[in-house]
C-alpha cells in the first residue's frame, strides 16, 4: 500500500465519488418511500395474475416488502449503472487508462513496485465501492425512516448486506482491475469488464424471469447477493465465499501478470 498513490487516486476521483454516491443515496431513499406509498397497490396488481409471478420478484427484490424494496434498489439497472462508474469504469481505466495516456510511466519511474501499485489501486477501488454501496443503503435507511416504516427493517442486518454488496461489486472491480493491468489500452480493458458484468446481469435476470433458465443463475455473481434474505436474517457464508474466491482469483491473475509484462512506450 502506497500512501501518496492512494491519496492521489482519491483526489482524482473525489468529485465523481461525491456525485455518484449522492445519486445512489437518493435512489436508495426513493425505494422505501415507493414501497410505503404504493406497495399494497403493486401487490394487488400482481395478485390479479395479470403479470407472471416471476415478475414480482425481479432479481430477488420486490416492491411489497421493505426488505424486498431495498433489495430491488440494489440490483435495479439504475444502481448497477451508478455503481459501475467505479466497479467497472474506474477499475478498467486505473492502469490501462494511465498507460494509454502515458502517465503510468511517470508514476512507475518512482520506487513503487508494480505489485504495490496494483494493490493500492485495488484498495482505493474497494473504498470507492464501499462508499457507493454505503450511500445507497444509508439512503434506504433514511427513506425508511422518512416513510415511517423503519420498524420493518432489521437494522442489525444492514452492515451484513453492505459487506455482501461490497463483495459483489468489489468482485467486478477486481476483475476490471485485472483486465486493466493486462492491456495497454483502455477500450479492451473496459470492453472485457463491461461485457463480463452485463453477461452476469443477463444470466441472473433471465434466470429470475424465466423458470426454464433458472439453472443459469448460479453462474452469475449477482446470484450471490441475496439482499432480501440477508436483510431478513439469512446471511449465506457460501455466497460470501464464492465472491471472495472470485476476488482472490482476479487478484492472483493481476499479481502474476502485471509485474511480469512488458510496458513498452505508450502508443
Amino acid at each position: 500500500m502506497n500512501g501518496p498513490l492512494f491519496r492521489h487516486s482519491v483526489r482524482m476521483q473525489r468529485v465523481k465519488l461525491i456525485v455518484v454516491s449522492t445519486a445512489l443515496a437518493i435512489w436508495g431513499f426513493l425505494l422505501p418511500v415507493i414501497y410505503a406509498k404504493f406497495g399494497s397497490q403493486v401487490r394487488a396488481v400482481f395478485d390479479t395474475g395479470l403479470f407472471p409471478a416471476e415478475f414480482a420478484e425481479f432479481g430477488g427484490g420486490d416492491l411489497f416488502s421493505l426488505a424486498g424494496s431495498v433489495a430491488f434498489g440494489l440490483i435495479h439497472p439504475i444502481a448497477i449503472i451508478l455503481t459501475s462508474v467505479f466497479s467497472v469504469g474506474y477499475a478498467a481505466s486505473a492502469v490501462a487508462g494511465e498507460r494509454q495516456r502515458g502517465t503510468l510511466e511517470v508514476a512507475l519511474s518512482r520506487p513503487v513496485s508494480r505489485r504495490v501499485f496494483y494493490l493500492t489501486l485495488l484498495v482505493a477501488n474497494f473504498c470507492f465501492v464501499a462508499i457507493n454501496v454505503g450511500s445507497l443503503l444509508a439512503g434506504s435507511v433514511a427513506g425508511s425512516a422518512f416513510a415511517g416504516v423503519i420498524d420493518q427493517l432489521q437494522l442489525r442486518n444492514v452492515p451484513l448486506l453492505w459487506l455482501n454488496a461490497i463483495l459483489l461489486f468489489g468482485s467486478f472491480a477486481a476483475v476490471g482491475l485485472a483486465a486493466s493491468v493486462s492491456f495497454d489500452r483502455l477500450p479492451p480493458a473496459l470492453g472485457v469488464t463491461l461485457g463480463y458484468v452485463v453477461l452476469m446481469y443477463f444470466l441472473d435476470v433471465l434466470g429470475s424471469l424465466w423458470p426454464d433458465a433458472r439453472f443459469l443463475q448460479p453462474y452469475s455473481l449477482f446470484h450471490y447477493l441475496q439482499a432480501k434474505s440477508v436483510l431478513t436474517g439469512t446471511f449465506a457464508a457460501f455466497d460470501a465465499a464464492i465472491l471472495t474466491g472470485v476476488i482472490a482469483a482476479a487478484m492472483g491473475w493481476a499479481l502474476y501478470v502485471f509485474p511480469r509484462r512488458d510496458l513498452g512506450a505508450p502508443g
Binding site: 495516456r101 502515458g102 502517465t103 510511466e105 511517470v106 512507475l108 519511474s109 518512482r110 520506487p111 513503487v112 513496485s113 512506450a265 505508450p266
Partner: peptide
C-alpha cells in the same frame, strides 16, 4: 525498485 529510488527519469514526450 531500488534503482528507481536513486534515479530521476524524464520520458520522451512526457505525459502529465
Amino acid at each position: 525498485v531500488a534503482i528507481r529510488a536513486r534515479i530521476g527519469y524524464l520520458p520522451g514526450g512526457v505525459a502529465l
